[in-house]
Simulated assay, not measured.
Amino acid sequence: MTFLGQFREVRPDSNGKEVDVFRMDNTTKSVEMPDMRADVGLGSCNCCDYFFINDNKIFVVEETRLADTIKAIEEQYSYLNDDDKKDCVVKNVRQENYVKVYGSLLVLCRLAAKCKDAAKRMKDKKHDFWLVIDGVDAEETRGVVEYLASYLLDDLRGVLTKKVVGDVEIIPSEILAKKLSANANTS
């Protein structure tokens, strides 16, 4: 039987309080934490790292090393000129994150179908997507970030509507704890 607590992970907020988040993507294959994707019958689909719920919203969170991703894409397309390379970077990062958001929503739907507690807590709430990035100081990362937030929001809302997607934010990893303080119900 699936229950929400089996995916619980505790994260500190900026006040030192504990915030309950629920691990979706257990790529570390930790023995203590089951893989939510597999537990709800989806195998190893792409999804975000975790989610948390407050009174009004579900926050779906993906933590990434965007600078490393950009570097890898630029190396893959090294034969292109700078403008075309930048377009490829933005396109690839957008697509990767669309897939993760869609996969996450599918995991959450399956979780709600298998777990009454999750269904009750998630019912009729909008989903905000947070892309938490390391390395925002690098100039090439800042350039991608400028394009990424509005494109992700527009594209996700265009497909999933405003009833499903509330907001999309790109958050530097240094302020994640502060954002958790402002948005999470603490235990």
Rank of each mutant, 00 (worst) to 15 (best):
D20P: 11
A72E: 07
R110D: 14
A177S: 14
K57V: 04
N54V: 02
I133W: 02
L42K: 02
R157E: 12
F51Y: 03
I170N: 09
K178Q: 03
N46D: 14
R11S: 14
L156T: 08
S150L: 13
V61N: 06
E146H: 14
K125F: 01
T69Y: 06
I175R: 00
V144Q: 15
R157P: 09
K57I: 01
K71N: 14
Y50W: 06
A113C: 06
L105R: 10
S173W: 06
S181G: 07
N97D: 04
V132P: 02
L108W: 08
A138L: 07
N54K: 00
E75S: 10
G166K: 12
D68Q: 02
E139T: 14
D134M: 11
V145S: 13
V164I: 15
V159C: 14
N56K: 04
N54Y: 01
V101Q: 10
K178W: 00
E139S: 15
K120L: 05
S187Q: 14
A38R: 12
C115K: 07
K29P: 08
E139A: 15
L148M: 15
E96S: 11
D49M: 04
V10F: 11
S30F: 03
K85C: 04
S173A: 15
C48K: 04
N97S: 03
G103V: 11
S150V: 15
G43K: 12
R121W: 05
N54R: 03
V136W: 09
Q6L: 00
K71D: 08
N185S: 08
F129S: 11
L176M: 15
Q76E: 15
R37P: 09
D134K: 15
K163M: 09
W130V: 02
Q76V: 01
T69R: 07
Y98Q: 00
D137P: 05
L106G: 01
V93H: 05
V136F: 14
F129G: 07
L66C: 04
A72H: 12
V99W: 01
E174P: 03
W130E: 00
V101T: 10
A182L: 02
L131P: 04
G166T: 06
E146R: 13
I53P: 00
V101H: 04
T64I: 02
S104A: 08
I70E: 00
L42G: 09
E18Q: 11
R8G: 12
M122C: 13
I70H: 04
E9M: 12
L176D: 15
E174H: 01
V107T: 15
D82G: 05
Y102L: 10
V107R: 13
D49W: 03
R65H: 06
K114W: 01
G103Q: 02
D84C: 10
I73S: 06
F129V: 11
D124C: 13
L4D: 03
K178H: 02
K163S: 11
M122Q: 02
E32C: 10
A177T: 02
D13K: 01
S30T: 08
L152G: 07
E140L: 07
